[in-house]
Design a protein around this nucleic acid. Sequence first.
DNA 1: CCAAATTGCGTTAGTCACTAACAAATGCGA
DNA 2: TCGCATTTGTTAGTGACTAACGCAATTTGG
Lengths: 196, 196
Amino acid sequence: MTLRQDKRRWTMREVQGAALDLFEARGFDAVSVEAIAAAAGVSPPTVYRHFGSKERIVLWDDYDPGLFAEIAAQTRALAPLAAIEHGLIASLDRVYADDARLVLRRARLMLSNPALLAANAPLMAELCAALGALLDQHYPRLGTERAELLGAVVVAALEIAIKHWIAEEGRRPLREHFREAFADLRSVVLTEGVLT
Amino acid sequence: MTLRQDKRRWTMREVQGAALDLFEARGFDAVSVEAIAAAAGVSPPTVYRHFGSKERIVLWDDYDPGLFAEIAAQTRALAPLAAIEHGLIASLDRVYADDARLVLRRARLMLSNPALLAANAPLMAELCAALGALLDQHYPRLGTERAELLGAVVVAALEIAIKHWIAEEGRRPLREHFREAFADLRSVVLTEGVLT
DNA sequence: CCAAATTGCGTTAGTCACTAACAAATGCGA
DNA sequence: TCGCATTTGTTAGTGACTAACGCAATTTGG
């Protein structure tokens, strides 16, 4: 809203863009924050003030608010698993329409580097907790612990979907991989008695 | 087996012990690797040669071989979810009998520090992959993708169990928390149609 | 039991991620 | 337009981590 916040967002996108270019060209470990700052026309401490760490330059985005709104909108009409599945897919579609290429680049980098994978863990843990809290709030009959577990399972499915999406270079949209992961999840638990 | 390997293990336990003492006293971030090395009577590069990073001094253990053997032993008689559940619980029991206190200290530290939580992610990803491969091998009818997903779900349940275990200071054994997480997982998927 | 090849350790020196402190500049409210 | 708050760049410093090298210990083959 204010000019300051707009500038901040603009600078962050600028730095992220410059960093992605450099990382893809030379590799994450071979690019110093100093080089990124120089390429983006800012000073190193400014990069840290915005992102906190080198890894978070890649991992940063602002999709979460839309995601939570989308899921909350589905909770009135659907059961927990279905609500979270449909809400997440709707959110994925919007992100896909806007920034598909950007998300692909970031995800590919993340899966190719252990340091980035590691730095992503606290963010995923946060997402798990937020999803769990949202479910607990909208489905009181579910119970806090089951809500927490459901959040974790959904995030695990999302991570696997992203992995498969990257593995085939994003040829099919991410939502399809996620839908498959969810179908697999249901069938695996439901057919448990049938096998062996 | 050889004297060298024995010495290596002994030194690693020594360094880990000294490090845990220091971390619990002053906090993970306030203890330098130099101080740990001095307390354990080795040089800093030796610490890195053994553990690779400061975080892995806390995260290192050698429980995985036992875990995989235990799960593989269950796959002939049980369905996938049940086999992995019982195998993991059996393995948990053995670890519990030997090193309950040590595991508790390490887990408490890990959950209290973002850097440790982050460094744990690649290890969990590796565990997911190994579990998935094991399931894929023993249950060909399951399919590679469902095996992979199952591994991820189990690890997510394990992480939640550890979290609850630490939250109540290890009063009830870890296996009980894990059993509850698994029961919740089944009930959440099975009762999906009933709620709202 | 002893040389020779292998392997691991300590010392040194260096790179780079990250932070604190301060001074200058820029957007904000009156 | 004028003080006020926030942001930025500069500087200096800490500490995680690695490469290189000489030395000591272990293993292997005789």
